[in-house]
């Protein structure tokens, strides 16, 4: 009888990285459906094309690095990156834009640093920011949502992506843009004057945000991540908005609800800020990480040069994560102080 010699523990929990990634993918479905409903099939084409590219780039990188394809592709992390970037890009983006974004995400941000787990920056956000800086026009042109303009069909979406002729759908400034450009109207009047606004925030955007919130809550319920980072993120964003709301004057930064349901807020809170690889590790660290990211989003939205700010805020916080980790080590059992402070005192 050949007895196996292995060290404890001999039992293993049900969790697996693959399952974690699959659940994250699943949780994006409500948000994606909402986006498709309001902005048309461009969203789906984005995601599908991005996913294809992700698998291709991932395979290429693994091949170049001499890794076993099947084992690493199985972790689904490349697909998650593809979906996240696909959602973040404006619908009806040309194929090459998405390709550049995915290449930056998978090759540059992920594999150049050593692959999954070693990347200090969120790959999808790196892809997004590279594009935003290189192709600002394409990256800030959003299709008008259903109810404001016409929504193109699937064929139009495919054509928009893959034919060289530029796409001529109806575009509209995003609500965050509109608010940013406003300097004369009271918010109330702005709301009445601009068709992009809905009940609480932008038409379409508000529901997409709510759908992403639902997906995020499901992930929380499944214990895929803890509440610390997303809650801190949303709370600080709302707090900042409340502090600088000033009753809706022309200089107002927008109401807390507006900020919570605009742009990439919920998507960012539950799918980007929670990215475990690039965030802080301890519970306290994640609170700090989320809170600072929320603060940055507000600062950039209201006083910065870009209308939405989740990608920048997250990348800056990726930078800060190791420092946060350093200063937020938990107190180990039987110690009076956390390791860091013990050392310094």
């Amino acid at each position: 009888m050949a007895l196996l010699r292995v060290t404890s523990p001999h039992a293993h929990g049900p969790a697996s990285t693959q399952k974690v990634m699959q659940q994250v993918l699943l949780a994006t479905v409500p948000g994606v459906i909402a986006l498709i409903h309001f902005f048309g099939f461009g969203v789906l084409v984005n995601i599908a094309w991005a996913a294809l590219l992700a698998l291709a780039f991932e395979s290429l990188a693994l091949k170049l690095r001499g890794r076993e394809l099947g084992f690493y592709l199985k972790d689904c992390s490349a697909l998650v990156t593809a979906v996240l970037l696909g959602v973040a890009l404006p619908p009806y983006s040309p194929w090459w834009l998405i390709a550049v974004g995915m290449a930056s995400a998978i090759l540059l941000a992920k594999h150049l640093y050593g692959g999954l787990g070693y990347n200090p920056f969120n790959p999808a956000m790196v892809g997004y920011v590279v594009l935003l800086i290189s192709f600002p026009v394409q990256m800030t042109t959003w299709e008008a949502p259903r109810g404001v303009g016409e929504v193109p069909g699937l064929l139009d979406a495919l054509r928009a992506c893959f034919t060289p002729a530029s796409f001529d759908g109806t575009t509209a400034a995003t609500p965050l843009d509109v608010l940013k450009q406003n300097n004369s109207l009271l918010l109330e009047n702005l709301w009445a004057a601009e068709p992009v606004f809905g009940r609480w925030a932008g038409i379409g955007w508000e529901w997409a945000n709510i759908a992403f919130l639902a997906g995020g809550l499901w992930l929380l319920y499944r214990r895929i991540f803890t509440w610390h980072a997303p809650l801190a993120f949303l709370a600080v964003l709302a707090l900042m908005a409340a502090l600088f709301y000033d009753g809706g004057s022309s200089a107002s930064g927008g109401s807390p609800l507006f900020h919570l349901l605009s742009g990439a807020t919920m998507f960012g809170a539950f799918f980007i800020v929670t990215d475990p690889v690039t965030s802080a590790v301890s519970v306290r660290g994640r609170l700090v990480y989320g809170a600072l990211a929320g603060l940055l989003v507000y600062l950039i939205r209201v006083w910065g040069n870009y209308p939405d700010a989740v990608a920048f805020a997250v990348l800056i916080m990726n930078f800060a994560a190791p420092f946060i980790d350093h200063y937020t080590q938990p107190r180990t059992y039987g110690h009076r102080k956390p390791a860091k402070r013990r050392e310094e005192s």
Binding site: T17, L116, F225, T226, P276, V281, R286
Partner: peptide
């Protein structure tokens, strides 16, 4: 076989 640590915590 072990996969990469995704720092999930």
């Amino acid at each position: 076989p072990a996969q990469a640590c995704i720092r999930c915590g």
